[in-house]
């Protein structure tokens, strides 16, 4: 993977100073960080079951469960083996896609996740898309409208609205939306994903907070870009204002936008857990909460792992895209 990457991007700027391509240095550094993070994540997930005070299987099955069942589950989880053996086995199983079985239902965890992950991804991706589609134009428009201290009133109103919406947690927004649009107006279903309409409220509940935060940051970013010399050059060319904003200002605010997008997607993990629980959405978020309540540790462990890997992958992709967009900073850093 690293080798293909260096080949595709070692374009004109790969001016090597110390004989090593800066892209190779970047790939090694960033790839190494990814693998290290993955290792820490897997280790933490593995340790979770052992950090639980007392016997996790007994805790899950309850005090009245027959001793034989508890022993059988312990053996099934491999908890009767030495810790180091379990650790090695855990890695080995992960690489074959075996995430163990649920303590409660005895169902393979990998199977449970496979059925639930798409629902969560659907929510999260749609919400991200909505955030970008609204926050980008909104932020740019606000920057253009309020640059050079124009329209102070508009700027203040925008700031206040954003602060308030950013402060309302998504679960409260979700509840409010349900109350207004599902309970009172009956426009949308109250819960579930049985119809495409069911997507509307959860996606909005997830998106509003990030839209408020995003559009404010993008406004500031675009404002700072608009103040730069090359925008003056573009104006000196007498380009149509629209072209100045879209061709010259926006691409230069891309670095910040992408970094934010990374944070946005990571943040969606927390958002989906809460919002899924409000709308009884059959995704990973409802499952992890149910599993924590029922002490189904193998499931909790694996869901945390999946969320964590998702976050790591997103960060990795964003860093690579950022490096491609702005080769200079990559080279400088490495």
């Amino acid at each position: 993977m690293t080798s293909t990457m260096t080949e595709t991007v070692a374009a004109p700027t790969a001016a090597s100073r110390a004989g090593i391509s800066p892209w190779l240095t970047f790939a090694v550094r960033r790839g190494g960080q990814f693998i290290l993070s993955l290792w820490v994540l897997i280790t933490a997930a593995f340790l979770m079951i052992h950090l639980v005070p007392g016997d996790p299987v007994r805790a899950a099955l309850g005090m009245n469960a027959p001793a034989e069942l508890v022993e059988a589950r312990r053996a099934a989880l491999g908890l009767d083996q030495p810790l180091i053996v379990q650790y090695v086995n855990y890695f080995a199983k992960l690489f074959t896609g075996n995430l163990g079985v649920s303590t409660i239902t005895n169902e393979p965890v990998a199977h449970v996740i496979a059925t639930r992950l798409p629902a969560t991804l659907q929510l999260a991706l749609l919400a991200c898309l909505l955030v970008l589609l609204i926050a980008l134009p909104l932020g740019v428009t606000m920057a253009v409208a309020t640059r050079g201290s124009r329209r102070r009133g508009l700027e203040l109103t925008f700031a206040i609205v954003c602060v308030v919406f950013a402060a309302i947690p998504e679960f409260l927004l979700g509840v409010g939306l349900v109350y207004i649009f599902a309970v009172n107006l009956e426009w949308f279903p109250i819960a579930g994903n049985d119809s495409p309409l069911g997507l509307v409220l959860p996606v909005i509940a997830l998106a509003i907070g990030p839209i408020a935060v995003f559009s404010r940051i993008i406004r500031v970013e675009v404002l700072s870009v608009l103040g730069q010399d090359f925008v003056r050059t573009a104006r000196a060319k007498r380009l149509a204002p629209r072209k100045i904003y879209i061709r010259h200002a926006l691409p230069n605010a891309m670095t910040a936008t992408l970094t934010l997008t990374g944070l946005l997607i990571s943040g969606m993990v927390a958002g989906t857990v809460l919002v899924e629980n409000i709308f009884a959405w059959p995704g990973l978020g409802t499952m992890i909460v149910q599993s924590i309540l029922s002490k189904d540790y193998p499931v909790v462990q694996s869901v945390v792992l999946i969320y964590g890997i998702g976050v790591l992958l997103v960060n990795l992709v964003i860093d690579i895209v950022l490096a491609l967009l702005d080769p200079r900073s990559t080279i400088r850093e490495s």
Binding site: A44, M48, S266, G267, V269, A270, V273, L274, I288, V289, I292, V300, V304, Y307, G308, V311
Partner: peptide, 8 residues
Amino acid sequence: PGLLLALF
């Protein structure tokens, strides 16, 4: 994300 750590 903080909530993921908190859930864990």
